[in-house]
């Protein structure tokens, strides 16, 4: 009986991890981070392979128009069935504006808020730490 129970519990635990698989459930899961005072706008889905070189890390690139006067929030969630830990960066032209990962302190914030004062087309980059293969979703929401 103990064995059966152990197997059942193991299955249950496996299922809870499977919730963050590389599919639409990852989007839904990541959206639970959005507060009730924010409204979901867009998702950025990235699935990147392994790389042979450290100098040319694979990056998934997206564009998004952000309007001044709005406060946006960007969240990044990595699928647990992949090795890679995702980083989301926001660029204004070539200039890095914000990142979920602070390299000097190796702090992974997983999200940031961005008070926009310049309407422009911004770039969202999603990559994985050390170029490891990964699957992630970035969520753009806006404070109501």
């Amino acid at each position: 009986m103990k064995k059966i129970l152990s197997i059942i519990l193991l299955l249950l635990i496996s299922k809870s991890f499977a919730f963050s698989q590389c599919n639409q459930s990852l989007v839904k899961n990541c959206c639970t981070n959005i507060s009730t005072t924010s409204v979901f706008l867009q998702q950025f889905r990235a699935k990147l392979g392994d790389t042979n070189t450290k100098n040319d890390l694979p990056v998934a690139r997206f564009s998004v128009l952000m309007s001044k006067g709005n406060t946006y929030r960007l969240d990044i969630c990595s699928a647990l069935d992949f090795e890679g830990e995702a980083i989301l960066q926001l660029f204004d032209g070539d200039k890095l504006v914000a990142s979920t990962y602070h390299t000097p302190s190796k702090t992974d914030f997983k999200a940031f808020e961005f008070f926009c004062s310049k309407t422009a087309i911004y770039k969202v980059y999603i990559s994985f730490l050390d170029g490891k293969p990964g699957c992630a979703v970035g969520i753009l929401s806006m404070k109501k």
Partner: peptide, 12 residues
Amino acid sequence: MLVIIQTSKSTV
């Protein structure tokens, strides 16, 4: 929470 406050401006 990391909060980024943009100081660039745009006017129309």
